[in-house]
Structures are given as C-alpha cells and as structure tokens.
C-alpha cells in the first residue's frame, strides 16, 4: 500500500523529460497516468529510484490530424478524452469504443493512451486495437524521434521496442475510410477485471461482402495478436464465411494458463469471441 522512496522529477518539456531519462537511465520510470505503475509500486513489485512525472510536459495531450490520413494522439491524453474526442469518434470510432472498456470510470480519468501502450501488457485492451488498426507510436530519445509500427512495438510480456532512454510522445492511428463496423468482445470474470480473452473484429462492408477485415486478440500470449489467417479467410467473402474463418483465430497463439482459463480454453474462447465480434461488426 505504500511505495518505496524515490527521487521525483517533473519535467515541463519533452526535451527535459528526455534529458531526465538520459541522466537516470534504467533506474528511472516514467509516470504517465500512473494506473499501471503506482499499483506495482504500492505492492513494492516495482521500486524505481527515480520517477519522472510526465504530467506537466507541454504538448503531450490532444488529438490532431497528421495530414497523411492519420490521427495523432498525444501520449498523455487520458482515456476519457480519447473516448469523447470528435476527431477520433468521426474517423476511428473503434478506438473510442475499445478505450471505453479499459478499467473503470476513475481509471479512465487518469490512465493515458501512451502509458497503457508503453506498459506493454498484452492483457490490456489497447495493444490489440492498435495492432489491428495498423497504428504506430512516435518515440523520442536523445537521438531524436522515430516511428515504431504497432507490429514491431510489442516485443514480449511488459516489454516494448522502446529503449531505456525513449518515451512515447504520440500514438498514430489511420482514419478509417469506407463502411467499417466493429465490435470488441471483452470476456472477463467481473466487470472491472482484466480480459481473460478479448477479441476485436473490424470489417469494411461493401455490397453485402466483407471487403477487408481486421482481428486483434487480447491476452492470447505475451504480445497482442493479430489474426491474419482469419482476416485473409474472409476478405472478399460474404458474412457466411465468418464462422469457418473464426475457427482459425487461435492459430499460432500460445496463451498462458491461469486461474481463469487453461491455454486450451483461451484458444476456444478466442475462436468463439472472434466469430461473435466479426458477426456483430458486419451488423
């Protein structure tokens, strides 16, 4: 319940934050909304020597159009702002809808999109949506900025492609063009619990057919999963193809077994939930 002591640094610009990271290296942890880090610190499962609070860094909040058909979301934009943002609702409503399933209302008031993604927890709801969308993050370090595709960003359990001296400044998602429908099936023991399995199904509808589909899975391994086999199997097909295609949703996954589900049951759930998500997405 009580974190260990730490040195507190509160930069006011991205450059200062990068400098603080460079100075303290792996002894430091970045504090965004704090809803992943502080619980770990309270249980003393994490005890960083330095905490760099990004709460006062200018320019890390808000949503804008980048100009290349994408939206840029400041890393410190809290979940509830993502859910309500007009640009996101108009062009990438799936992100707003999945974000609404993160934690509970109080968590969504503090937790941030950048923090949730940088935590790299495949049981979180946002990694799978970023992956399915083909989104990316902008990372900044002493050497400047770089863009990391979602497919490359999530490396392992609680591990991302960020280096120790980098921070996420921005999240980028494409504007969805065409007649898209989506559904995120979050399957959990109680409302506020983490997903046992989550399945995001997105379909672009065209003349009664599925022109394109995206499927992302939560908590089906150490990284979020994108089910290309299922996506490929329904591309250009009628909705009747969903059932057979969803049967491939668990192909190649290696989920963990825990108190809530064996790996086998998780794979079964992934198939069932993917079928339901895609069916609902078609509408």
């Amino acid at each position: 319940m009580i974190p260990a002591t730490f040195e507190y640094v509160r930069p006011s610009s991205i450059d200062e934050a990068v400098a603080a990271l460079a100075e303290h290296g792996d002894e430091a942890k970045l504090l965004a909304g704090g809803h992943s880090l502080l619980p770990l610190m309270k249980l003393r499962l994490a005890a960083p020597e330095v905490v760099i609070d990004l709460g006062r860094v200018d320019g890390l909040r808000g949503v804008s159009e980048v100009g290349d058909g994408r939206l840029a979301i400041g890393a410190m934009t809290p979940h509830y702002k993502v859910m309500a943002d007009p640009l996101i609702r108009e062009h990438c409503g799936v992100l707003a809808d999945v974000t609404a399933k993160v934690g509970d209302a109080q968590v969504r008031h503090r937790g941030t999109i950048g923090g949730a993604l940088a935590h790299g927890d495949s049981a979180g709801d946002l990694p799978a949506v970023l992956l399915a969308l083909g989104g990316s993050v902008i990372a900044q370090g002493p050497g400047g900025t770089r863009e990391i595709e979602a497919a490359d960003f999530f490396v392992d359990y609680l591990t991302t492609a960020l280096s120790d001296d980098e921070l996420v400044t921005e999240v980028r998602v494409p504007k969805l063009v065409g007649d898209w429908g989506w559904r995120y099936e979050k399957f959990s023991r109680v409302a506020q619990a983490w997903a046992i399995v989550g399945a995001l199904g997105m379909v672009k509808r065209s003349n009664g057919h599925i022109e394109e589909a995206r499927v992302g899975l939560t908590n089906m391994g150490t990284r979020p999963v994108r089910c290309t086999a299922t996506e490929d199997a329904i591309r250009g097909q009628s909705p009747d193809a969903i059932e057979d295609a969803a049967a491939h949703a668990s192909d190649g996954t290696s989920p963990s077994s825990d108190l809530n589900a064996t790996a086998e049951f998780r794979q079964h759930l992934a198939r069932v939930l993917t079928k339901r998500a895609l069916t609902a997405a078609v509408g």
């Binding site: 409302a191 619990a193 983490w194 108190l259």
Partner: peptide, 10 residues
C-alpha cells in the same frame, strides 16, 4: 485483482 468481488455491473 484475483479474488472477484462483484460490482453493481455484475
């Protein structure tokens, strides 16, 4: 986190 006390939503 692991002992599931239900909320109003459940």
């Amino acid at each position: 986190l692991d002992y599931y006390v239900p909320s109003a939503a459940d």
